[in-house]
């Protein structure tokens, strides 16, 4: 008798758990040739709400960990991803098409990118912070602090490298993230959430919703308990991006604006993905106390 496959249910990742969408909806995910692959949960605005609550709850403990510890945890994510490379290669090739070698390159780059950001965890403050010379008997220094809960609309094209390249810089500095994955290519993001769940990342630090950035973006952008938003996922839709920026202005969210087109993720990202979501705190300190 032929064995029946045990198929995976692709679910959301909220607060360290894998719930189905609150709405009960799911949608069909196809490979790049249009062939059915799986059903993914279609996140609703209430999943956004739940994810923000989870991210807010996780923010205090995560941001008060030492930078060194956060770096170690990011490095741990890279270790666990490395272990599951064949699975990621398969998922990336299925959703993005192209050769196996191309997919392997994407996965390698994603793991390397995590290691790169892990290294920055306890070095960013030295580079962008400062001891400021002032004309008075004071010691004055500036240091970066995490912004809070960051909404991330992940890139639509690059399903793994792009995702890692927008999530890692947000959490490495102590923020927590609510991520809306690529709509057409969500499966690598779901597998990535399984990696997060098994690599010492506290529940709620990263929450991954599979669904439509155009539908969920406005709720995330208008949410008064979200402190910043990365609009990368609506690159190429300037009108939508503008309306999200307007909604984000209500509580003075920091906005990382949508690029005109998705960037080449293989390039050196520079520091701006991290510096977009930190705030500089300057402290005046009387000398000698």
């Amino acid at each position: 008798m032929a064995r029946i496959d045990v198929r995976k249910t692709y679910k959301l990742y909220i607060g360290g758990a894998f719930p189905r969408s609150e709405s009960g909806y799911s949608y069909e995910v196809t490979d790049n040739k249009g062939k059915f692959v799986a059903n993914a949960s279609l996140a609703s605005r209430k999943d956004v709400r739940d994810a923000v609550v989870a991210a807010r709850k996780a923010f205090g403990p995560w941001s008060s960990r030492t930078a060194y510890n956060r770096g170690q945890i990011l490095y741990r994510i890279a270790e666990v991803m490395e272990d599951r490379r064949p699975q990621f290669e398969e998922a990336v090739r299925q959703s993005e098409g192209g050769s196996a070698a191309l997919a392997r390159g994407q996965v390698d780059a994603a793991v390397d990118r995590l290691v790169w950001y892990a290294g920055w965890a306890d070095k960013l403050a030295q580079v962008i912070g400062n001891a400021n010379p002032v004309a008075g008997p004071f010691f004055n220094h500036t240091a970066p602090e995490p912004t809070g809960v960051v909404g991330v609309l992940a890139p639509q094209e690059s399903s793994l490298l792009g995702l890692v390249s927008v999530v890692a810089p947000v959490i490495v500095t102590g923020n927590t993230a609510v991520v809306v994955s690529s709509y057409a290519r969500p499966l690598p993001a779901v597998t990535f959430s399984e990696v997060l769940a098994t690599s010492d990342v506290p529940g709620g630090v990263v929450n991954i919703l599979t669904g439509d950035a155009a539908a969920l973006g406005p709720w995330l952008a208008a949410h008064m308990d979200v402190n910043a938003i990365d609009l990368c996922g609506v690159a190429g839709s300037p009108e939508l991006a503008t309306s999200l920026e307007v909604a984000a202005a209500d509580n003075l969210k920091r906005v990382r604006r949508a690029p005109a087109a998705e960037p080449d993720w293989a390039l050196d990202p520079g520091l701006s993905p991290m510096t977009a979501f930190v705030e500089q705190k300057t402290v005046w300190h009387p000398i000698g106390i």
């Binding site: 956004v48 709400r49 923000v52 807010r56 709720w219 208008a222 949410h223 008064m224 308990d225 209500d250």
Partner: peptide
């Protein structure tokens, strides 16, 4: 208001 509020307010 039609948008989610937060405990900050």
């Amino acid at each position: 208001t039609g948008r989610y509020s937060g405990p900050d307010y």
